[in-house]
Design a binder for these strands. Structure first.
Length: 478
RNA sequence: GGCGGGGUAGCCAAGUGGUAAGGCAGGGCUCUGCAAAAGCCUCAUCCGUCGGUUCGAUUCCGACCCUCGCCUCCA
């Protein structure tokens, strides 16, 4: 079975075939261009943002696993209304302000073990943005209002045979946009028209660039069109983002990008659009007033690791609304421990042996993931395998070579899941000494002393697990 | 109001026109001097409600109820 993905354009699961099937990447494998709408850096990312980014990471990792050479781009939107407002409030320079949150974002991605690719910044592509607007102007799809702003005309766009509303069914007559239009101070021609270039206003402060239309800054959607096409070309394979971006952001991106008519005949701007669903936290929509608005640092300060957060975020299918809970996070910890213990035992048994990967396991995993990233099914396969392995381990019916083969398979699977090895925790020397002392006490059948030591070690935050290979110290969960 | 998702055990979550994966929690047990966050076993006569199609539906169709999202900044 080949890789299949749900394409928002057709609203169905389609076989994935690269837009340029014969093009190869630098490593000689079939080339795939992937773009994911990145963060607007005005604050720390929250768990909802990270669901989308972990989803994007999964797509990218699975494409790589399936033999594609993936060029992955994720933009950093570092100029936008909210940013400008906060820059004004904080009195800090734009770049100093945005860099703070950009760095935090990068750090969070690292904690979640997300692969990073090219991350262009909007402010470093102002030239591309202006050039794109000029193309739209030349084609008569853009117009200027008295204040010096540039707008995209949906009416003109539709007039030249293009369809607006390909990702969502849009019926303007039924839209409840009335209130907003009335409140809009700009003189755009139609309610749904959107800004390409916003003329500078005094509140923008220093945040402005020169343009053929006067000083201003990019509109809301244009940076993604400009940067994706600048790096991946006018047509590329995959564009991802959260479900809320489908309309109007992605719809407008398509209109701008295809309106500029830079694609070759028969090639769309993007072949596959993938949208990740939102999540609920403790069964409710995230909100600061409900106190269920988690940033990654909120979770790490509660003692959870990125690995646990990642596992939980990947426990449900990306197109289903997911309920993120603290209990779920604790469950993810237990589930991860189950895998880790199994891997540890296999590693010990395999010793120095090496073997080719257990094909049955890898194939079953691949088949699940090929079906529109059915990650829940994939976990089921992994845990079935863990249980069966534990049985064999317990009955000592596994050979070192078989253990090595299983480990090789897990290694492949984990290039997709991205859990990585269990983080090593340094056992304090004093506790190791106590553990040794306890071994001696046990040998002398001084069990009172042995239990006393276990309590002492527990008080220090560690637990002693007696195994055939001697005592094992594990950090207690916070 | 328009459009689009969902409703499967205490919680999270797959799935199929032929009789319900997996994880967590719970229960039982095993190894152990004792333990374990270690391992094994167990845990939905039933898949929102009511009708219909069918030999047979949780899975298809219809109605209804509930819920979430987008339409406005938003992952």
């Amino acid at each position: 079975m080949a890789l299949h993905l749900f394409n928002s354009l057709s609203r169905r699961i389609e076989e994935f075939v690269p837009i340029e099937p014969n093009r190869l990447g630098p490593d000689g494998r079939p080339y795939v261009g992937l773009y994911c709408c990145g963060p607007t850096v005005y604050d720390y990312g929250h768990i909802g943002n990270f669901r989308t980014f972990v989803f994007a990471d999964l797509v990218r990792r699975h494409l790589d696993f399936r033999g594609y050479s993936v060029r992955a781009v994720m933009n950093i939107t570092d100029v936008e209304d909210k940013i400008i407002r906060r820059v004004r409030e904080s009195g800090r320079p734009l770049h100093e302000f945005t860099r703070t949150y950009e760095d935090a974002f990068l750090g969070d991605l690292k904690i979640l073990n997300c692969l990073t690719g090219e991350m262009p910044r909007a402010t470093e592509h102002i030239g591309d943005i202006i050039a794109l607007i000029q193309k739209l102007e030349q084609r008569g799809l853009a117009y200027k209002t008295a204040d010096g702003s540039m707008w995209f005309s949906i009416d003109k766009y539709q007039g030249c045979g293009c369809r607006y509303g390909v990702l969502k069914t849009i019926d303007f007559s039924q839209m409840r946009a009335g209130e907003r239009v009335a409140a809009d101070e700009y003189e755009k021609e139609a309610a749904a028209d959107f800004a390409l270039w916003k003329a500078r206003v005094p509140d923008d402060g220093e945040v402005a660039w020169d343009s053929p239309w006067g000083p201003g800054r990019p509109g809301w959607h244009i940076e993604c069109s400009a940067m994706s096409m600048a790096l991946l070309g006018p047509s590329f394979d995959l564009h991802l983002g959260g479900e809320d971006l489908a309309f109007p952001h992605h719809e407008d991106e398509i209109a701008q990008s295809e309106g500029a008519a830079v694609q070759t005949e028969g090639h769309p701007f993007v072949k596959y659009w993938l949208h990740g669903s939102h999540l609920l936290v403790e069964g409710k929509k995230m909100s600061k007033t409900l106190g269920n608005f988690f940033t990654l640092r909120d979770l790490t300060s509660k003692g959870f690791g990125g690995r646990e957060v990642r596992q939980l975020l990947l426990s449900a299918h990306y197109r289903e609304t997911f309920n993120f809970t603290l209990d779920g996070l604790a469950g993810a910890r237990s589930a991860l421990t189950r895998i880790d213990e199994c891997i540890d035992k296999l590693t010990q048994l395999a010793g120095g042996e090496s073997a080719s990967a257990d094909k049955g396991l890898v194939d079953a995993f691949t088949e699940a993931m090929d079906n529109d990233l059915n990650v829940a099914r994939a976990w089921g396969i992994v845990f079935d395998w863990v249980r069966e392995t534990n049985r064999q381990l317990a009955s000592k019916t596994l050979t070192p070579v078989q253990a090595a083969s299983a480990l090789a398979a897990w290694k492949q699977i984990d290039t997709v899941l991205g859990l990585g090895p269990r983080p090593e925790s340094e056992v304090p020397a004093a506790l190791l000494a106590l553990a040794q002392e306890r071994v001696a006490a046990k040998k002398a059948r001084d069990f009172a002393r042995a239990d006393q030591i276990r309590e002492q070690v527990r008080a220090a935050g560690w637990m002693i697990e007696d195994t055939a290979a001697g005592p094992k110290l594990k950090p207690l969960s916070p």
